[in-house]
């Protein structure tokens, strides 16, 4: 287990209890998803794991050691992209390395590699305003990959993107992760997305957020992208999860 959370509790400033007694383990090299309806605290939990917001109880362990704030082994991909609007794609992707003080030539070289990997070759000198939503998120992903963190945290990364782009993204993401041995913790409210991508799915129930079930989809991911969506295991998983979540709607 590369990441573990134990007895996590979080209460917002306004007194609302967001998370209570959350215990989860995330296996190395696998994609785990936090899934649940709006308001169940999944983004809060993800940001606590990232060290971006403080917790009121419990601990977060990375490689067995407790962590309190952000660290070089964890990289975050934001729902609203969080790109510097005045910087071009190259600088945005290299930003993580820039903050670490890596020399310009070296960090740009690394950034270019990942820009090509996410399919944005040729767009290095465009600014975010000149990119579509899908392309902006690719920049966000490239930025997270560039810092070579073992753990990538993704907060509903495809929710601000249209359906077709989203599907393509999901396929590309699986492809990308096959090449790089990363551990991914993913937040979404889409059951299909979770079933398509995940090795394990943690279902969170709302207010206060707690883990209600852990589901391991029985999907053969070596199939072609389109075939996965008709895989028996995938369809069964989707039905099973919907059955558990519908009571919260």
């Amino acid at each position: 287990m590369i990441v573990e959370v134990k007895n996590i509790a979080k209460t917002y400033d306004n007194g609302v209890e967001a998370l209570r007694d959350v215990n989860l383990s995330f296996p190395k090299g696998q994609l785990s998803t936090l899934l649940g309806p709006s308001g169940c605290g999944k983004t809060t939990l993800l940001k606590i794991i990232a060290g971006l917001i403080p917790r009121n109880g419990g601990e977060v362990l990375v490689n067995g050691k407790p962590v309190d704030g952000p660290g070089p082994e964890r990289a975050f991909v934001f729902q609203d992209f969080a790109l510097l609007p005045w910087a071009d794609v190259l600088r945005n992707v290299a930003f993580g390395l820039e903050l670490r003080g890596v020399e310009r030539k070296q960090r740009e070289e690394t950034a270019r590699r990942y820009i090509a990997e996410v399919g944005l070759k040729g767009f290095e000198h465009r600014t975010p305003a000149q990119l579509s939503g899908g392309m902006r998120q690719r920049v966000g992903l490239a930025r997270a990959l560039t810092v070579n963190a073992d753990i990538i945290l993704m907060d509903e990364p495809f929710s601000s993107v249209d359906e077709q782009t989203r599907r393509k993204f999901q396929e590309d993401l699986l492809d990308l992760l096959r090449h790089h041995q990363k551990t991914v913790i993913f937040v979404t409210h889409s059951i299909e997305e979770a079933a398509y991508l995940s090795d394990q799915i943690a279902l969170l129930s709302p207010r206060p957020g707690t883990v209600s079930r852990i589901v391991r989809p029985d999907v053969d991911r070596k199939k072609a992208p389109d075939e996965i969506r008709r895989d028996r295991g995938y369809l069964d998983t989707v039905d099973e999860i919907w059955g558990m979540l519908r009571q919260y709607v």
């Binding site: 971006l52 952000p70 070089p72 934001f78 609203d80 930003f95 903050l99 670490r100 810092v147």
Partner: peptide, 14 residues
């Protein structure tokens, strides 16, 4: 300043 950008900077340990 958008809080998202500040968080992003912190997430990369700025």
């Amino acid at each position: 300043t958008p809080p998202s950008l500040l968080q992003m900077c912190r997430s990369f340990q700025g």
